[in-house]
């Protein structure tokens, strides 16, 4: 270690500490000399920010999840396979729980739960976009596809349901990927953990659905 930083540090310490308060160090990258900071700076360093893309991600994912729940409500009167029914119920449960968490995250930051941008379906699933063949966001079923699903029943419904839900989950994975690719996104620990849990859990569900689908 070069003596100069240590010497400088000693001077800084002597001035700032006044022999009373122990120093607060901010170390810097490996190998770098630490610098002494104030208590106010230390507090400031612990703040975490979120960016607009984080907020959009949460808002969009709520809309995305809501469609999964809507798909499962169709299942009650239309599905043939008990396995598919059970799976659907559990998906609805987990998606609803996650929606509540996303709402909480937004509300705790005094942010609107619904996205403000026009591509996101301003009020969620109730307001369909103009084109019946265009899904709102990646992986979501288009209005026509939802209509087709609602019109089917029995084994045909099961197949459409699983295919749709696999695509739907894949869309969620794409949304996470897009989020993480952006600059400064997912710094908020809770959001970042949540995004990664979506990846883990929905990948697992996709695998399970593919297995069921191949056995139909």
């Amino acid at each position: 270690m070069s003596p100069t930083p240590a010497l400088l540090l000693a001077i800084v310490l002597g001035v700032s500490a006044g022999g009373q308060t122990p120093p607060i160090f901010h170390p810097g990258a490996p190998g770098a000399a630490p610098r002494v900071i104030s208590a106010a700076e230390a507090v400031e360093l612990s703040r975490t920010g979120f960016v607009a893309a984080d907020v959009r991600f949460m808002q969009h994912m709520i809309v995305h999840h809501a469609q999964a729940v809507e798909m499962v409500t169709l299942l009650e009167t239309r599905a043939a396979s008990p396995t598919v029914r059970l799976l659907g119920e559990r998906i609805a449960q987990s998606q609803a729980a996650e929606m509540a968490l996303m709402e909480e995250w937004l509300l705790a930051r005094s942010l609107p739960v619904a996205a403000a941008d026009p591509h996101a379906g301003h009020h969620g699933i109730n307001h369909a976009p103009a084109d019946p063949d265009t899904p709102l966001m990646p992986g979501m079923l288009s209005p026509s596809q939802m209509t087709a699903l609602a019109a089917s029943s029995g084994p045909a419904f099961d197949r459409l349901f699983l295919e749709g839900m696999i695509r739907h989950h894949q869309g969620a994975l794409d949304m996470v990927e897009a989020l993480l690719a952006g600059p400064d996104t997912a710094e908020d620990p809770m959001l970042s953990d949540f995004a990664s849990s979506i990846t883990a859990d929905q990948s697992a569900e996709i695998l399970r659905m593919q297995t069921i689908l191949s056995g139909l």
Binding site: R90, S94, A97, L101, D193, F194, E205, R208
Partner: peptide, 19 residues
């Protein structure tokens, strides 16, 4: 573990395996 708080329902995990 904040993640557990987020997914405390753990419903996602139980999808994979019925009892």
């Amino acid at each position: 573990n904040i993640r557990s708080l987020l997914l405390s329902s753990a419903a996602a995990a139980s999808v994979l395996f019925g009892a």
